[in-house]
Design a protein around this nucleic acid. Structure first.
Lengths: 148, 148
DNA sequence: ATAATTGCAAACAATTTGCATTCAG
DNA sequence: CTGAATGCAAATTGTTTGCAATTAT
């Protein structure tokens, strides 16, 4: 159902008097298809359909889409920001061993945010919360952590 | 009391048959002094004392120190990893408006980790937990969030 | 028609790597 | 002495920017 998001995109663009272009749609579709992806991953994915779509455009478009509120980004694991379509908010569990990113719906996150708000006056964006750790699979595989 | 950490460092190095050098001590001191800092910040800081100490060495040393377990790194806010001395573990509250990083001691983090462990079998590294949001000061200043 | 958007190529910044020199053990 | 560690400079990688050509409106 790519039509839905396309429409939503069009709408958002029109609202700001911006233009609806193929590349913008492709970038959004790629983000949606990936679930969560770095700019590079989006580039790769998008260039399958449109090899001429340049990285510059991907970067610019991601920024734009974020401003429009249709996607948002978090910083998981290492340096690269990870984009995902807005709305489908969740917590990320990032495994430091295998790098896998699992999405989770966690009740306690609210309690945590509440405490931080009360004690530090800090308004946590729960949607951008990501946890670093070791996933079940890796924990099973390597009971004794190695150096590297 | 920089003597303490110097000794600890020496010890850790010896244990692995590695050499104790001035630059390694300087890098560790810089990390300790900064509380939490990116490689670049460490470079800057370290080059005050030793202008010839090269970035390469800083990068290599941070990696080494981490392997030794005397420092660890997290990813706050944007891309750059942030290093801090191990032991003094805490949660980071990163303000997306002003970029300020506040350290917090939060009880609920344990409950959160527990839930994730129970439901997903994911072993959270609580020490690397960082929250994205808006700090008290910024919330007060700009009641109406802007686009950029 | 007209200005927004794109693609390209060059500019940039941050990090990594190879290698000759230096220095701790 | 001897190999580990450093400093330098060049190579990479990921991202940004300027500008002419393109294209949605």
């Amino acid at each position: 159902m790519p039509t839905r998001s396309a429409d939503a995109l069009d709408e958002a663009l029109r609202a700001r008097g911006l233009r609806s272009t193929l590349q913008r749609r492709l970038v959004l579709d790629a983000v949606a298809a990936l679930g969560h992806g770095t700019p590079e991953q989006v580039c790769e994915r998008v260039q399958v359909e449109a090899p001429s779509l340049s990285p510059s455009t991907v970067y610019r478009t991601l920024e734009l889409l974020e401003k429009l509120g249709v996607v948002s980004h978090t910083h998981l694991g290492h340096g690269a920001p990870t984009y995902h379509v807005s709305g489908h908010e969740h917590i990320h569990l990032v495994c430091r061993r295998c790098g896998a990113v699992q999405e989770a719906d966690v009740v306690q996150a609210g309690a945590l945010a509440q405490e931080v708000a009360d004690r530090y006056g800090f308004a946590t964006d729960v949607a951008h919360l990501s946890l670093d750790g070791v996933c079940a699979r890796c924990a099973g595989k390597h009971p004794t952590p190695a150096g590297r």
